[in-house]
Amino acid sequence: MDPRNYQIVALSTFVVFGVTVLGFDIHLSNAVAIIGAALLTQYGLFSTIPSFTSLVNEAKSALISALSLVLLLRTDMLFIAALAAIVAIVSKRYLRFNGHHLFNPSAFALVVVTGLSSHAYLSPGQWGALGLFAFGVMGIGLLVVTRAQRLDVSLAFLLSFAALVLFRGWYLGDPIEIAWHQLQSGALLLFAFFMITDPKTTPVSARPRIVFGVLVSALTFVLQFYFYVSAAAIYALVTLAPLVAIFNLYFRENTHAKNDVVYHRVAHVSEFQQRNGFLRFLRRQS
């Protein structure tokens, strides 16, 4: 089963949950503009042979970026919503290096449009505290990433971010509740499971992928606590994206397998087996 199907279902669920239960300010017109613009741009730029399979294939790819934008971007201008979708897809087509697109499309689009206009903003606090909801995210997210074989980067990001936040709390002498509150962020988990896991914009082999996860968490920590940037993880991911290209050049052992998803999986799974019992266990589960 194509892991992107899971991703589309999960993201759609979050949108519906956000609007109905959490009262997110997601306008239907924005959602239509984002999805419409993403699909049109995708077809315009990528589609070569107009076969049914290729149409569905392109639509899935565009939908994932579009749904992330629907979920995260808030704006009162339809034009900005559509622009974000176009930026996301165009970046995927033209900002490429060594056969991969450089930036996570939706993260890149969010950084661009929030930088361009104060009418575009992110609303990271609206997920509220963890609770049942986050377990939902975790469950569905875990499923998605184990299918996509990118659980390592999520865990590397989350664990090292948690370690940094706990260390800061300890250094400041704060009660543990504060660090716990800071980690109970729906936005953080959403990022860890649905954004940083994009297989095209994380390093191909496992070791550099873990390093990448740790680096993104470190930059997120610095931006959030020392530069007071909200939604810092997205900025950190976009800033560090060029590293992925560099990692892929230096760790060549698997790069010949690029674009071959099946081979990929086998290649980095065998690496886990050698190094890490826990991840090997997870592989068995999946």
Partner: peptide
């Protein structure tokens, strides 16, 4: 409310 209140200014003028 264990942590201080942190704010953001949104672009929403509704």
């Amino acid at each position: 409310f264990p942590d201080d209140l942190k704010f953001i200014e949104t672009g929403d003028r509704t």
